[in-house]
Design a protein around this nucleic acid. Structure first.
Length: 422
RNA sequence: GGAGAAAUGGCAGAGUGGUCGAAUGCACUGGUCUUGAAAACCAGCGUACCGAAAGGUACCGGGGGUUCGAAUCCCUCUUUCUCCGCCA
């Protein structure tokens, strides 16, 4: 959520930057400023009125104590006259604030200056591509290979739950476990602390990281208890720090966690959802950071380097994209996507997304850093996948398929205990 | 799931209708004293909003209500603890 004061002070710049998202928010932003001015006026009026009531009430108490019941009752009457006015102002203020809040929630984060205008993923900038050759050779797709080696059973998942909930079997399951362990080890050795968060979250948490109200329909909702299945570990982990003030000496905060993730993926269709490409339940290891504002972009680069290193160790061809305004997530100021090339499908598959949210989340989280005795600032939050499993598995299966079986990347051998799936 | 008790500042813990934004202790910060430290003593020490400031307003788990006035009374939700039941 953006801060009203910032919008007001930088109005033209904000409008202009948001245009990179292909929408003109100027009239909404103006309304926000108006609602805020209203809020101030109404609040001031209400405060003055309440102050009057407080004073009179004190006097009434005093009069009763001194046995002056008559006078007290007189005063009571005058307070009673003020009360409807208080009620009215209070209601007015509340409804104004609700409107303000709703509008604020509908404005996405301001794209960083590095973000280019663009309408879709086609306009994303490729900022790195690892060296490899795209060949015309006809290779099998992972859903066929998985069936051949019996490592992922899509049919069984359909039976037990529905499409998008595959069952991993034998060495397929072992490969998943190996990847999770490798990712976690990699992250903790870079200074991230491992956590195991809840995978259901309440409404407050889903709101604070920005899933609500923006992505309401994309989350599985448990209506009995009003809880949401997490779409990413970002939600519970970042919410550890909701409503808190952190000493700047306690920064940086670096956390990593493995969780299953759940997404309804309403609206997805066709080839995109084939095999492991797009699932309703998948595994992911996430990295989350809380930083001082002045450090966050340096940290973003560091996170990109970290994930780059993992993909190099896995020996997968990959590229890094800087997302354009049209593809940038609602809450993000700058995002780098990692895609691996999957040789069977001849397709780039997104395996990681690393974002700096600046103060957009922390404003909702009420997550502040104490700079010194007097000064507090909203922290910056960042997170990224390191890494999402299914598409990594798909790429390994398609790229490393050979007559002897699927070659397991060397770095994983100590985790799998086997070098081939055959 | 059933019965009961509870939720107050960073922590502990007073406070059952008015002078309570809240005693006291601990922790923390600054100072005095000291060659230095400790101890002792003095002072400061929540968050948010409005305001240039003075100051004002709100917040005692969340929401609602009663009252001229609520931390205190009522309703409701959540959480914690104890006992019973069930259970990986």
């Amino acid at each position: 959520m953006l801060q009203v004061d910032f919008i007001k002070e930088n109005f033209l710049k904000v409008v202009d930057s948001l245009k990179k998202r292909n929408k003109d928010y100027s009239s909404d932003l103006k309304k926000i400023i108006d609602f805020n001015e209203n809020r101030k006026k109404q609040q001031t009026k209400l405060d003055a009125l309440l102050s009057k009531v407080n004073n009179l009430s004190k006097q009434i108490g005093e009069l009763f104590k001194n046995g002056k019941v008559e006078e007290a009752n007189e005063l009571k009457k005058s307070v009673e006259k003020i009360k409807p006015e208080v009620k009215l102002l209070q209601d007015l203020l509340n409804s104004n604030n609700d409107d303000l809040q709703e509008l604020l929630c509908s404005i996405p984060n301001i794209p960083n200056e590095l973000v280019k205008k663009g309408t879709s993923e086609k306009d994303n900038e490729i900022i790195f591509e690892s060296a490899f050759k795209i060949s015309d050779e006809k290779l099998d797709e992972h859903w066929d290979i998985c069936e051949e080696y019996n490592i992922v059973d899509f049919e069984l998942g359909n039976k037990v739950t529905g499409s998008g909930f595959p069952v991993y079997k034998g060495k397929g399951a072992a490969l998943q476990r190996a990847l999770i362990n490798y990712f976690l080890d990699k992250n903790t050795s870079s200074g991230y602390t491992e956590v195991q968060p809840p995978i259901l979250v309440n409404e407050d948490s889903a709101f604070a990281t920005g899933q609500l109200p923006d992505k309401e329909g994309q989350m599985y909702h448990i209506s009995n208890d009003n809880l949401y299945l997490i779409p990413t570990a970002e939600v519970p982990i970042t919410n550890f720090y909701r409503d808190s003030i952190i000493n700047s000496s306690d920064l940086p905060i670096k956390l990593t966690g493995y969780t299953p993730c759940f997404r309804r993926e309403a609206g997805s269709y066709g080839k995109d959802v084939r095999g492991l490409n797009r699932l309703h339940q998948f595994d992911k290891v996430e990295i989350v950071r809380i930083e001082k504002p002045e450090d966050s972009y340096k940290v973003l680069d560091e996170m990109v380097e970290h994930v780059k290193n993992i993909l190099e160790e896995l020996e997968l061809p990959f590229r890094i994209l800087r997302l354009c305004g049209g593809d940038l997530g609602f809450t993000s100021a700058l995002t780098y996507d990692f895609e691996v090339y999957s040789k069977g499908q001849k397709k780039w598959l997104e395996v990681s997304s690393i974002s700096n949210f600046e103060t957009y989340q922390s404003n909702r989280l009420k997550l502040r850093v104490r700079i010194n005795e007097k000064e507090k600032k909203l922290a910056h939050t960042l997170n990224g996948s390191a890494l999402a499993l299914p598409r990594i598995v798909a790429a390994i299966v398609e790229n490393n398929n050979s007559p002897e079986g699927i070659k397991i990347p060397k770095i994983l051998h100590k985790y799998t205990g086997f070098k081939f799936i055959s």
